[in-house]
Computed example of a mutant assay.
Amino acid sequence: MSSIEARSWAFLSEAPAHRDIETLEAHFRRTLAAFGFDRYCCTRLRGLEAHEAPTVVSRHGFEPWDRRYWRERYIEQDPCATWIADSRTGFTWTDVREAAPVATAQAMWSEAAAEGMSNAFVVQMPGPLGEKIILRMTSPSSRLSPQHRPLLEGVGVVFATLAVRLRELAGDRPGPGTLTRREGQCLAWAAKGKSDWEIGAILDISPKTVNHHVEAAKRKLDCPTRIQAVTAALACGLLPKV
């Protein structure tokens, strides 16, 4: 087994056990390095318009390029946007350039290469709120061995999925009383009759995470039902204004 395969399988088997985003990110960076990739950016994307910059889930070394990309409105000439809109996954910038050379994008490619990003591997998957999760991993080299592409795609999908989940949970910080901030928010919206899906859309977290927070609040308040938990939290003054 090659070092790339060994590191990939180690990540795939160990990553689900990580309980914080920082540990996951560090492990992912070490794994990417085995492929010759040194930067990445994982985002939640709801649109492909110039004014709709995506929500960043996790990134390393990508900040300068992202600022330039959105400032220069490269989204309007980036052929990768079409591939993403068509839900293509597991593609490289080289694939895009060779399939459909776009003259207007040459400046963008040249500037990326000048910043040490000669090629990128892109994977995407559906997000918990109907958006797309996009992961771009870049390399100073333009080469990516075909035999390594399935492994890198698997590693990327697992990382992005776990990163979204851990980032949601990382927003849960201790608040007043016995409830965390997120638990209080979820109960407060539940008190207004909102469903888990609606609360998730409001707080930008998944319905599954909303249910996680509500169930945690029920246990802390020793209440068997959601309605009783809301009532108890109101009586104790634990619900924030929403």
Rank of each mutant, 00 (worst) to 15 (best):
L135T: 05
S58G: 02
G156A: 08
K194D: 05
R182M: 15
A216W: 03
V158S: 02
E25Q: 14
E98G: 02
L152Q: 04
L239A: 04
Q147R: 09
T209Q: 13
V123S: 14
H148P: 00
A232C: 10
A103C: 02
P224H: 03
P79T: 04
F91E: 11
T104A: 08
T43D: 08
Q124V: 09
V56T: 13
A188H: 07
A10T: 00
P64L: 08
A33V: 03
T231V: 06
R182T: 04
R97E: 13
C41E: 11
R29K: 13
D78W: 02
G184L: 12
S3T: 08
T23L: 09
P101V: 03
E5R: 13
K192H: 08
A163R: 02
E72C: 02
L135V: 11
F62V: 06
D38S: 15
C41W: 06
A113W: 13
P54Q: 06
R165K: 06
F159C: 10
I133V: 15
A120I: 13
D86K: 02
R97K: 15
W83Y: 09
A53Y: 01
D78G: 06
L169N: 05
T94W: 13
A34I: 02
L166H: 04
D222K: 14
F37Q: 06
A53D: 06
H213A: 00
R29C: 10
R167C: 09
A15W: 00
K208S: 13
G90E: 12
D172N: 15
M108I: 00
D38T: 15
L32P: 12
P128E: 10
E5A: 09
S118E: 15
D204K: 09
T82I: 01
T82R: 11
H212D: 11
K208N: 06
R167H: 04
C236D: 12
L48S: 08
A235E: 15
E98D: 05
Q185Y: 13
A120N: 12
I4Y: 01
A17Q: 07
W189L: 15
F62K: 10
C236R: 14
E5S: 09
A190K: 14
W65R: 07
E98R: 10
Q77P: 01
